[in-house]
């Protein structure tokens, strides 16, 4: 992984700067779990839905923390938004991720959507459309590990791990233990020529 990253960095003539590393990510997630519990009065009727791929891992971690603090489990699921994207026609057809709802469904629940990076807001727009076809939650909230700005739609996050001012030419990469073998958020900058 490190080798791959180094290679990618050198090819694109970019420099990588770690914004969050190792335990930083879990600290942010622990804070978000507390905020969720606070805002939802103890997490009753909360359903965490992660957006594949990394959002699902983040949702599972949040659920783990909430269980630790409150002693009761919160249902976790995943919500694939591929079929609802507005940019499908710009690339060859993409493989689908998995949508898995908790057995109790989402009707009359407070759904917290979980994603790794909040950027244009288009993913969240697609997720809201997908939710619409799956049921009628009482409320929908949004948690993002990183909010990097540059919204193209009127969408904001309710819970943010880290606000990260970026320029559009920069790239934010999130690495998670479960998927990439380590925890880190990197900001890749293109170097001046």
């Amino acid at each position: 992984m490190v080798f791959c990253l180094a290679e990618a960095v050198s090819r694109a003539r970019t420099s990588a700067h770690a914004v969050l590393e190792g335990p930083d990510i879990n600290r942010a997630l622990i804070r978000i779990s507390h905020e969720i519990l606070e805002r939802t009065k103890g997490g009753e009727d909360v359903v965490l839905l992660g957006i594949p791929t990394r959002g699902v891992h983040l949702a599972r971690r949040l659920a783990g923390h909430i269980r630790q603090f409150e002693g009761h489990p919160v249902p976790v699921g995943s919500l694939d938004i591929t079929m609802y994207r507005d940019d499908l026609r710009t690339k060859p057809a993409r493989p689908l991720g998995r949508t898995e709802l908790p057995s109790d469904g989402i009707d009359d629940k407070t759904v917290v959507l979980v994603d790794d990076v909040l950027y244009s807001g288009r993913t969240v727009r697609a997720a809201l459309d997908a939710l619409n076809d799956l049921g009628r939650p009482r409320a929908v909230q949004l948690a993002a590990l990183v909010d990097r700005g540059h919204r193209e739609l009127p969408i904001r996050a309710d819970y943010v791990g880290k606000n990260l001012p970026t320029s559009k030419s920069e790239i934010v990469k999130v690495y998670l233990e479960e998927h990439d073998g380590r925890d880190a958020v990197l900001l890749l900058k293109e170097e001046d020529k």
Partner: peptide
């Protein structure tokens, strides 16, 4: 395999009350 895997995910849609995608 891509077709079969895609079909696997789409099979879940037939269990939903709204069996339609806007794609």
């Amino acid at each position: 395999l891509l077709i079969l895997d895609t079909a696997d995910e789409l099979a879940r849609i037939s269990d939903r009350s709204i069996k339609k995608l806007p794609t």
